[in-house]
Amino acid sequence: MQKILVVETNQATYGKKATPTGLWLGETTEFVLKMHEAGYQVDYVSPQGGYVPVDPRSLKYANKESIRLYQSRDFERRALAETHNPAELTAEDYHAIYYAGGHGAMWDFVNNQPLQQLAEKIYRNGGYITSVCHGIAGLFNLRLPNGNFLIKGRQITGFTTTEEMLAGKYQVVPFLNQPMATKRGAQFVKKHAYSSFVVQDGRLITGQNPFSAQAVAEKLLHEIKPASTTGTKDK
Rank of each mutant, 00 (worst) to 15 (best):
K34A: 15
G39D: 07
V52E: 01
Y40V: 01
L144S: 02
K225C: 05
N148W: 01
T83D: 08
R68M: 06
Q117M: 13
Y14M: 12
V32C: 08
M165I: 11
T182D: 09
T9G: 07
Y61L: 13
Q116W: 04
L139G: 00
D201F: 02
T130P: 08
N63H: 13
D93R: 11
K233Q: 15
K17R: 15
W24P: 00
F75H: 10
K233W: 13
L139F: 04
L144H: 06
Y70K: 09
E37W: 01
L115K: 04
T206W: 08
G39R: 10
K191I: 02
M1D: 14
G101L: 13
Y61N: 10
S131G: 06
Q208S: 11
Q116R: 15
Y51A: 08
M106P: 07
I67D: 00
H84E: 11
T29S: 14
Q214P: 00
Q71A: 10
I4Y: 05
V45C: 03
P47C: 05
R154D: 00
Y99Q: 08
A215H: 11
A100G: 10
K183D: 12
P174H: 07
Y194W: 15
P53T: 10
Y14E: 06
L25K: 04
A213W: 03
M106Y: 07
L166H: 03
F159S: 01
G147L: 12
K190H: 12
E30K: 14
E30L: 06
E163Y: 06
R77E: 13
D234E: 15
Q171T: 10
R154S: 01
S212R: 03
G207L: 09
Q178D: 13
V216E: 02
E223W: 09
L220F: 13
L142N: 03
G127P: 03
Q2T: 14
D43A: 10
I129C: 06
Y123M: 02
I129S: 02
F75K: 03
T9Y: 08
Y44G: 00
L118E: 05
K169N: 13
G26Y: 02
G168D: 09
N209P: 11
R124H: 12
L139Y: 02
F211A: 08
Q187E: 13
L25N: 05
A119N: 07
T206I: 09
E30P: 00
M35W: 02
K190R: 15
F159Q: 01
E8G: 12
E223M: 15
G127N: 02
